[in-house]
Design a protein around this nucleic acid. Sequence first.
DNA 1: AGAGGTACCTGGCAGC
DNA 2: TGCTGCCAGGTACCTC
Length: 271
Amino acid sequence: MPELPEVEITRRGIAPAITGGAVQHVVVRQQQLRWPVPRRLGRELAGQVIERVDRRAKFLLLRTASGTLITHLGMSGSLRILPQGTPARPHDHVDIAFDNGQLLRFTDPRRFGCMLWTRRDPLRHRLLVNLGPEPLTDGFDGDHLFARSRGRKVAIKQFIMTARVVVGVGNIYASESLFVAGINPKRAAGRVGAGRMHRLACAIRKVLSDAIAVGGTTLRDFTGGDGQPGYFQLRLAVYDREGLPCEQCATPVRRIVQGQRSTFYCPRCQT
DNA sequence: AGAGGTACCTGGCAGC
DNA sequence: TGCTGCCAGGTACCTC
């Protein structure tokens, strides 16, 4: 479900409800997520005040004075604020109850998400320490993409989905960004010139920030952290539009598979 | 070092 | 109606 915009929407949805709140107790119904939920999570969190809710890549960081909850929504996860006492439904794996009566509920049918705890600087955690720059901050631009891609034969689409290169570009927005930049997704990363890399970096920024501005892309049942469905669907130019006319030239949008993931592009506009 | 494939898991849907 | 097979937003980890 979530790409970076959806994770950011979730962060903005839950942060006002839980920042400054003290954790009353934690209920873990399903410990087997991507990695096991630590048994000590409830003990560590009980009584702690959430000082900030940060995001790094697609990880959400719930910071307290004694440690940080690191969570990821995987493919199908969501975090929502609910009133305490809301009955749990299937796949509601973790509840964090707050002393103000609120409940932060983690739901994840496919269980590719995670909930971990660290007492150390979370940015030095093994899952975060090797991540590339955030696409919406200053450390990311065309020069960075150009420098990192020289000599690389991997397809540009897979290159921009590599977390060590840049974080937060998932399967949907990779296709969309390449369409905006007019680059064929099959092109070797090392054979995209500096000017086009600049355009690509701009396209990634624009696609992601537009998606955040409209509340994420609605796919199936995505809902933001405030429980409001992401109804304001960003119109996607190519993703999931196989055979439909390109909005620029009317050529049918093509679907291919790269690295076992679907890619959509216009064979005429993207070279 | 880089490229490519596998693994984790469930649900929805098309096709028969 | 019910079965089978395929597809899905992510990413760590394995081998070659």
